[in-house]
Amino acid sequence: MAKFIIGAPSITGIDANDLVNEFFADSTFPLTIRLQNHLPRNISLPEINVFLKPFDDKAEAKIKSLDKLHRLVSSIEQIAELNKHEAAITVEDLTLVSASKPEPAKPAKVTPVVAPVVEHVVGV
């Protein structure tokens, strides 16, 4: 199970699409993700029909393809950038990973992007 926070890349120094490539490149789609809003404002993501109220509102969404996930993450990243938030939205993969699946390499790479409120969870 992958879980990470997307923030403004100018602050975090991390491209969220790299995280997608790391955690989801081998995933089977469609998959279900959970989004959690950490911003003090409503967030509207019509690409996946999700509307999040401020401060930790959560919603689940089905993502049809890796391409769509990349576009979604780019959008969230842009919202974080426009509003200059270090930790905007948590993306959590709700799909169980099979035991035989190797863990993603270099989990330490994502550490800097983690906001204090949530930890990265790689694997189950």
Partner: peptide, 19 residues
């Protein structure tokens, strides 16, 4: 455009989040 499927509240949020 703002997606016509959105509620008024979500439509407003969509524009405001773009700042």
């Amino acid at each position: 455009d703002i997606d016509g499927k959105l509620t008024i509240e979500a439509a407003i949020a969509f524009v405001e989040q773009l700042n």
